[in-house]
Amino acid sequence: MEFNLGLSFVVGAVVGVSAALLGIFIVLYRLSLAGDALSHVALPGIGIAVLVGISPTIGAIVFLFAGVISIIMIERYTTLPIDAIVGVFFTTSLAIGALLAPSSEELLESLFGEITGISAINAILGIFFGLVVIALTLYKYKDFTRLTLSTDFAQSEGQSVESSEFALLLLLTVMIAIGIKIVGILLLGALIIIPPAAAKNIGRSLRTVTILAVSIGFIAVIVGMVLANFLDLQPGPMIVLTNTAFFILSLIIRRS
C-alpha cells in the first residue's frame, strides 16, 4: 500500500508536469477546447476495448490516433478551423461511446481515473510516456513557439507548419492516453489547460510562463493527492480543484 501510494505520487507528478508543459502550446495555439474535446474521442475506443476484453488504454490510444489523423486530413480538405472539426469528432465519439458504454467499473475508471489504485505496469508506462512527452516537447520547443506565435512567421523561417502541427497533436494524443489512467478523461483537460492559463495570467516572457506552468502542474498534483488522502476524497477531482485554486490566485496576482 505504501509502495503503491508512493508510486502514484511519482506518476501523478510526471503526468502533471508533462501535461502543463505541452499545455502551454495547446493554450497558446488556441487549441484548449480541442484538447479537452479530443480527450473524449477516446471514449468509443474504451467502450470497444471493454466489450472485446482488451486494455481500455490501448483502445483509447488507437481511437485517439485514428481521430487525430482523420482531423488533420479533414482540415486539409476543408477550410474549417481545427477546433470545429474536433468538435464534430467529439460529439460523434460521445454518441458512439454512449451507445457502446457497458455499465462496467472499468469504464467508470476511465472517466474518473484510478491514480491511487494504479497497477505497477500502468504506473511505469505512465512515467515512461510522460517523460517522452516532456523530452519531445522540449526538443520541439522552438518549433512550437514559432508555430503558435504565427504560422506565417514559422513558414517564413522555413519551418513546415503541417509537420509541427502534426507533432503537437500527436504529443497531445499520447498525453491524453496516459492522462486517462491518472485523472480520467473528464478531468484531463484541466491538467493541460489550467496550469498554462494561470501561468499566462502572471508571466511576461515565455520562459517565465513555462517555468510557472510546470511548477503549478507539479504542485497541484502533489497537493491535490495529499488533500485527497487526508480528507478521504477522490484524488482526480481534488487535483483539478487545486489547479483551479492556482488559477484564481493568478487572477488576483494579475489584478494587483
Partner: peptide, 8 residues
C-alpha cells in the same frame, strides 16, 4: 499574431 502572446 496574438498580441497577448508571452514572448519578449
Amino acid at each position: 499574431f496574438d498580441h497577448t502572446y508571452p514572448l519578449t
